[in-house]
Nucleic acid binder design. Structure first.
Lengths: 232, 232
DNA sequence: GAGGCAGTTTGCGCCAGCGCAAACTCCCGG
DNA sequence: CCGGGAGTTTGCGCTGGCGCAAACTGCCTC
């Protein structure tokens, strides 16, 4: 089945391209479904494709030699991922796992060079993506170096909520299942500490949370926690 | 004074370029001296130029709103830095300070687009630089999340020694002045802890260290420390 | 609707690493 | 050669956050 250009026309990665360009880019792409918890590519695997997430949420995970896992980031709808080719890498530096059922476009890496010359604005947006991920990661290093666990966890939850939030009954909720363990792996802490803090915040009326679910009821108060300015 | 192409001909960033191309790239560049401890550009400053370090060592520093400093990385001879333009940024995300007297080439950002089309392999190497910095930074996040302070500091010293090492009398030494505080800012620890560990390692015969100076006498033993495999 | 499993909560004890304070040492400039 | 300041060392006490263990809870399957 042919892919419709309306799938991608609105995305920033494709802004400034002609409709006909879009069609020819799409002609080389392939659309796939990835069920929840399936692996889209694995760490250190030969990089063969790059991807664009059409719908769903993806967890990017790095695993250390002795089995510790770290969540590098979550990918949201409309974002590029697996763009090892744009960094001149031949393997994926982390694995990508569908946090919910996902649909993604993929292109063989061999199309990168041609795409870059035919649609430089597309390549440019890939480079910008990498640049902003470098910024985010640096920011994370700064947080881990200077802030204590409570602030880091508050920041992480805020980021999740603003980037992947959905309006719910009582506040903004993270719109994919996320466990205490996941938050721990994003913040360099432990599932126990995350659980204790979420409980404490719930007592203060800042969040409501349950099994793989977090709703922020008072974002402003959570910002104060993240900045270590909350009065207790 | 005209710049000689031999300055840059050997650098990976310029591999695969004609001599005449080199000359025309150099014609747009400007060479500057930066005395030790001077600032080359400041964090959040409008990005006007990108740079190539010809000689010396540069410290890239991020400062938080409440005054904490983090060393993001050190730049060695032959490396690009300040390439905000390649990431589509308009400001420098960190400041750059000369760790020793330095000489660097600089180009106005306005030359980037032209350079990219005339010497795509040069631009490509800039993108690769950004990609590998992203990898390094992710690696640092993983270390900070999973390893304890002693291992992180050992890894940091090893990295400094392999990237900026110089053979000395009794071992390999870091060839620019570096304080306990600097190491603390690279590893998310404190100058006290760094000092204590260096003292302990000195007792074990792994390093020798003094004022702003570190010499690794037994790199293999230090690797064991970094991997948490040393027998005590 | 009855398990059962995956995820969560909470008590408890512990220790790695922080951070102050004070002393020390080395280097540099005059 | 002397003085001062920057960088370093070390003792000491404290505590944030870890990590085990055990109980609990809610969801999904059969």
């Amino acid at each position: 089945m042919p892919l419709d250009r309306s799938l991608i026309a609105g995305l920033p990665a494709f802004s400034g391209l002609e409709g006909s360009e879009l069609d020819s880019i799409l002609a080389q792409a392939c659309s796939s479904r990835f069920p929840r918890n399936s692996e889209i590519f694995g760490q250190d695997q030969e990089a063969s494709h790059f991807f664009l997430l059409l719908s769903g949420h993806i967890r990017v995970v790095r695993t250390t030699p002795d089995g510790d896992q770290i969540i590098a980031r979550y990918i949201n709808e409309g974002e590029l991922f697996g763009i090892a080719v744009a960094m001149g890498r031949t393997t994926y530096p982390a694995s990508a796992v569908a946090a919910v059922d996902c649909v993604a476009l993929s292109w063989p890496n061999s199309t990168w060079a041609e795409l870059q010359s035919r649609a430089p604005s597309f390549a440019g947006s890939a480079y910008q993506t990498i640049g902003s991920r470098l910024q985010d990661t640096q920011e994370r290093v700064v947080e881990m170096s200077t802030q204590q666990v409570e602030q880091r966890i508050a920041s992480a939850v805020l980021r999740l909520v603003t980037q992947s939030g959905r309006k719910g009954e009582t506040g903004i909720e993270i719109d994919f299942p996320i466990s205490r363990q996941d938050i721990a792996e994003m913040t360099g802490s432990t599932l126990y500490t995350v659980s204790r803090l979420l409980s404490a915040w719930e007592d203060e009326g800042i969040v409501r949370s349950g099994r793989q679910k977090i709703t922020v009821t008072d974002p402003h108060a959570l910002m104060l926690v993240a900045e270590n300015r909350r009065r207790r």
